[in-house]
Write a protein that binds this DNA or RNA. Sequence first.
DNA 1: GCTCAAATAAGTGGCGACAATCTTGGCATT
DNA 2: AATGCCAAGATTGTCGCCACTTATTTGAGC
Lengths: 237, 237
Amino acid sequence: MNDRTEKRTVRSGGTEFIYDQILGAIFERKLQPGTRLKEEELCEVFGVGRGGVRKVLQRLAHENLVEIIPNSGAFIAKPSIKESKEVFQARRLIETELVKELCRQFSPDKRRALEEHVAHEQAAHDAGNHNLRIRLSGEYHLLIGKLADKPVLTEFLREIISRTSLIIALYERSKSVKGHVGSAPCMDHRALIDSIENGDADQAVQLMRDHLLGIENMLDLEPPPKETVDLKSLFAG
Amino acid sequence: MNDRTEKRTVRSGGTEFIYDQILGAIFERKLQPGTRLKEEELCEVFGVGRGGVRKVLQRLAHENLVEIIPNSGAFIAKPSIKESKEVFQARRLIETELVKELCRQFSPDKRRALEEHVAHEQAAHDAGNHNLRIRLSGEYHLLIGKLADKPVLTEFLREIISRTSLIIALYERSKSVKGHVGSAPCMDHRALIDSIENGDADQAVQLMRDHLLGIENMLDLEPPPKETVDLKSLFAG
DNA sequence: GCTCAAATAAGTGGCGACAATCTTGGCATT
DNA sequence: AATGCCAAGATTGTCGCCACTTATTTGAGC
């Protein structure tokens, strides 16, 4: 039974491991959008055949995290501005619904799970581990869906949260103020727990919405001017 | 049917064709939940190698339309009652949002596209083509998302609409009243167009919600009583 | 007649090799 | 000097074979 996983990580269960590794790298921004993922390279790194790697890449492609160009290769996806805005819209839609659900069916156990997670976030923040903090922040949102006991919506959420990582990596306004913006979400997450515990669904929903809008507003999602004009003026000056 | 362009389709886009065929069969209930999909069989039918078939099956598995049991085979998924309810909840959530969006940005072209589609539905209904009507009904909802210009949400919707087909196939209350229940949706679809055109977003949302609730209420999603208790009372009586 | 077990058959999973295609570098031409 | 072209290298896509797992059937024992 469990021998199968113990036998060889190379076998069928190995693909799950590869997927998690790549997903984690995306969450922690170690894989920037546009990065090329060569099959052979991944084979060497994870010690599996190309078949396994290709399966993982196909899955990531279906989740819109990598773009596979036929006969050319697989690249970490670069969500467009329009797509990014829609991702945030979808997040607001789904996450506010999940918060509502969680308010409806709350319990001390769930509260403890949330607080524990936020504590981890705080620890990561205090330790200055920015990448880990970002990852945990995403997992916090996922935890809400999980605790709300809504697997279908949570699965969708998992996908768009992953995409959000790519979006932030692409359109982050200014890298120098990372430390500043990094402190806010933890507080938002704490405040949200309180609202949920008080059963104040409306307030919780509003907090979640503001929280997501806050993240979106940290990004630069303004459509850039046309490049042709830029090139011209650039060479003219 | 038997396209002799197989050699072409094998090369690049062949898998897309297979995917569409299987998806269409699911939409039209020709593939019932639990049906086994043998790789070799599909190879013969579509004239492709096992690699292509396996890729399609993986994709369908990721969309929760087929369940792949390792070393055993691929089967058309059988959504649980709990999962089915959540799918309908997700549909209400996403589709009401899409309707709102469509109200915000409506145009004569979009109205014509919707009316044209409903006309096709009506034609299929009049022709007594029940399977085609079901398929077109699903595509109507998808068309709303497409016209609302929200690819991300529409992609999610596409997945859960496919799942809805499986759910209906599993939990349809009574097969004899198909003709009756078949006439209602067309009218709902027409009424929705009018509301959208009038810019009455609230009414349109309400219509969509009622429409989806109506579909859900046609199903038998009551959890069956526990068998252990039944056994007891059975022997007592 | 029934149950269990072993052998056989069937089907999936994975791996390697070959073919098709894209990219890159150099070269000739304008 | 810039551009188009061609060939070599590199990378992906596909096919066929073999190993492993699972399902089925058959046979023996109770």
